[in-house]
Amino acid sequence: MYLNQFLLLAAFLFCVGVYGVLARKNAVLVLMSIELILNAVNINLVAFGLFRESVAGQVFALFVIAVAAAEVGVGLAVVILIYRNRHSIDLTEVDMMKG
């Protein structure tokens, strides 16, 4: 097996995730796209771990999973709060930061 086949697949997933983050209006869908990105990173970590015959790749993939869990937890809390306040989770309407 080539190393690149994993890396390219991961790159593809990453780019699909980026598209989702950029183009989706629904906040929950954006969170899902972020999961795609994180998974792409994890594939890279594990593939390089095997390539370098090092355990560090797997360990850091585990850390990324833990951080992803935290991210989804806090992210959904924020989304629910936004929904409660504005009765919509349409990200194009959340533009209070406009100057």
Binding site: V18, V21, L91, M96
Partner: peptide, 14 residues
Amino acid sequence: MQTGRVQQYALFLF
């Protein structure tokens, strides 16, 4: 450039 829309900023970023 500052529309306040996070996704547009992300677009600039990427």
